[in-house]
Design a protein around this nucleic acid. Structure first.
Lengths: 225, 225
DNA sequence: ATTATTTTGTGATATGCATCACATTGTATA
DNA sequence: TATACAATGTGATGCATATCACAAAATAAT
């Protein structure tokens, strides 16, 4: 299915920089797909020739570590997915999976490259994005390895609230196993710490429904443990 | 001091894509500097308007974690430094320090941006570089958090041999404290594990001189622990 | 509705490694 | 050459958290 990209209401900042001409090129060279929660978007180990545009929905980027699957980051729409894997390597180096219902557009790599070549502003924004990601990954790495579990879990919850859902009440889009893979812990520890936070009145846990009751405390835990 | 970039013998793949015109622009808009081991190249928290080209030498990228300084990665010449920090943020988000004598060129951000705008091939290469870095950081993060210390140390030693020095004999450019910050351990553990590897005949340690004696074993340790 | 399967809660135990404490060696500095 | 300071070696101890082993809910499948 193809739609007119010019009128797409889900443009990223980068995409809004594109010329009409490039948008038309996109329109006639992309495949739009509706996905259900759990559907695979990019699969580690498979051949890759597409950049993916996440139009709506929420996805996880995950990678097979030496022992367990690790969730590298959560991404919400609108956003481009798979640039590193598609540009940097013929074979996908990580997986992306929808954790909510989602809409995606598959864009041929050559078309995307062409659009990069023809749109300086677009390229600038994409590079900005790369820079932001690299900085984030530096910070994430330093935090994850130095902080204790409580701190990392607090971080993750704050991230969901502030970056993903923009609300202090949300339902966790991950199982505890997945949450553990995101925070680098065991499933059991996730369960325990969540219960602790609840007992301490920092958050209210009801199944996967999370309500942040005391954000200051949560930030403190994030900083100190 | 300014030199002619056209004849610079230390071009990256990206730089070799530049037009004569852009090289001239670079020539007249960069500051070349000779640095000594330990000299700071980029300092976290300071204002940043320059991209740095590492012409010769070896540098560490490091970042202040919540508790200790963490070395994110080692970079050897020729390579551009500080792109994420300079493009993505006005204030440097990480530090870069020479760990050997080095030569660097400071390039004004606007000049660099201009050169990006004018050279598609150059831009492609830079984007490739970003992609490679992001993939690397995914892998590094998954490995570091899942592997035991012996595995991570084996990894680091293999990295030095294969990527940095291209030789199975080299002198470690880091103190044990720094090595610990690179591998996410304590200084004591570095000392102990190095001694273990030596005792097991996997490597020979003599001060900071490292000789890999049994690379297969080292790879095995890297994989299993 | 009933069964099967996945997800979650919670105690007990084991362990890898940080931390502490100090000895020893190496390396700048006066 | 002596002295100060940084880098390293090595044991003893403690702690955070993984792992194991179940029970209990919750969801999905029949």
């Amino acid at each position: 299915m193809q739609t007119d990209c010019r009128n797409c209401p889900f443009k990223t900042k980068a995409t809004s920089m594109l010329s009409e001409c490039s948008l038309d090129q996109l329109s006639s060279n992309h495949l739009e797909l509706k996905l259900k929660k759990g559907d695979s978007i990019i699969k580690q180990g498979t051949y890759s020739t597409n950049v993916v545009f996440l139009r709506t929905g929420l996805a996880k980027i995950h990678i097979a570590g030496p022992y367990t699957e690790q969730i590298v980051k959560m991404v919400n729409a609108p956003s481009y997915l798979g640039l590193p894997t598609t540009f940097g390597s013929k074979i996908n180096q990580y997986s992306v999976t929808a954790v909510s219902d989602a809409e995606v557009c598959f864009i041929d790599l050559e078309v995307f490259q062409n659009i990069l070549d023809e749109n300086k502003e677009f390229t600038r924004e994409i590079i900005q994005e790369f820079c932001k990601n690299e900085l984030e990954s530096f910070h994430r790495c330093a935090n994850r390895t130095q902080k204790l579990i409580r701190g990392n879990m607090a971080d993750a919850i704050l991230d969901f609230a502030d970056k993903i859902f923009k609300s202090d009440s949300f339902v966790l889009p991950l199982s505890q196993v997945e949450f553990a893979n995101l925070v680098d812990t065991s499933r059991e520890s996730v369960s325990r710490v969540l219960a602790e936070f609840d007992k301490d009145g920092i958050i209210k846990v009801n199944g996967r429904q999370i309500d942040i009751l005391n954000k200051k405390s949560l930030v403190l835990v994030s900083q100190n443990g």
